[in-house]
Design a protein around this nucleic acid. Structure first.
Lengths: 178, 178
DNA sequence: CCGAGATATCTCGGTTCCGATGTATGAACG
DNA sequence: CGTTCATACATCGGAACCGAGATATCTCGG
């Protein structure tokens, strides 16, 4: 998740750790700041993999910044991750929404539509929490308000995303202007 | 996340690993099966902590089942985790919805309302993806349909949950019948 | 001029999880 | 009677992450 976000942000231009921290936190649905202990090791890891290079930029700010530039290998890695998403990217909400935020970087409407179709296929398999056997559950069947709420919130989310997915896939297939 | 789910399910009655696997997978929004390599070590860990005991039940099924029983220490642990949720439980969607599914086990409406209030406080802090400074973003401002979709889906989810949270907190505070 | 706070990076220990792999049994099917 | 499938449990290596702490610089108010 983190690595995809870093690749995606750097694709828009060079940045540095402290700046990425803010941007990444803002991405994840609602502000969940990424710990420094997660971010900086990830940067180091990715530099080691050759996806980005670091240059010291002294005097730019209080502490010395190490500005990060996406390499060509990094661009290829981003493209690869967007085009062939890991199964977890399709099932984990955090990962999926991160991927969605950067799907614009995939310069191929057919490939974009294919990614959306995969998420659609995942969402369309019946979630057991929603069903009792084959029969859809009704919220009132739960004796407690918490599972009722969970069900209704999950349904609202699902409906919104399914409608958007179907409309957007159609639009991409038809080659509409965005 | 997993440990809370296991505690929560066992509170409803004894079960065994393979059964929990199905139940846990069904919980997490949409079916994301928990890997065996995650589940069984978790059970072992929790048995070591004294939260559950294992009894072999030969002949019940093909392979020998090890039926899991929640201990009193396990019940206390469940209660503790529900009453004083870890900050991550309030910010991570997967963790939060898991907690919500078992909040019924907390036998104290005031404490339940307090938990919901904490989640509400978290959701009410403005998410930077939704705002440009103090001004709410409009979906159309994004040039690509993907960030537009992300924003509209996130808003739909947010609205549904906020409405439910406020209504349920009121209801718990007034002491309404469920 | 001094301290507080924001900026900025890095490391370490510990936890949880995934993915792959291994093992074994009973049931169903031909 | 053999193959295949579902059930059931377990271990191992590695990836990713959190939380806490360490360090250093610049700015700004008092």
């Amino acid at each position: 998740m983190l690595e995809l976000a870093i690749l995606g942000f750097l694709k828009d231009g060079p940045s540095h750790g402290y700046d990425l921290r803010t941007k990444v936190a803002a991405l994840t649905g609602h502000v969940r700041p990424v710990a420094d202990g997660t971010l900086y090791p990830a940067i180091k890891r990715m530099a080691g993999a050759g996806w980005l290079t670091r240059k010291d930029e002294p005097g730019a700010a209080a502490a010395p910044r190490r500005v990060l530039y996406l390499t060509e290998a990094g661009e290829r890695e981003l493209e690869r991750r967007l085009r062939h998403p890991d199964p977890l990217d399709l099932s984990d909400e955090n990962r999926w929404f991160t991927l969605l935020a950067f799907l614009r970087h995939l310069d191929d409407p057919a490939a974009q539509a294919e990614v959306l179709r995969r998420r659609l296929a995942f969402l369309e398999q019946p979630a057991s929490f929603f069903y009792d056997g084959d029969r859809p559950m009704r919220a009132e069947e739960f004796g407690d308000p918490f599972r009722q709420g969970l069900l209704s919130i999950a349904r609202a989310t699902s409906r919104a995303e399914l409608a958007w997915l179907r409309a957007t896939i159609d639009s991409l297939d038809r080659g509409d202007a965005p």
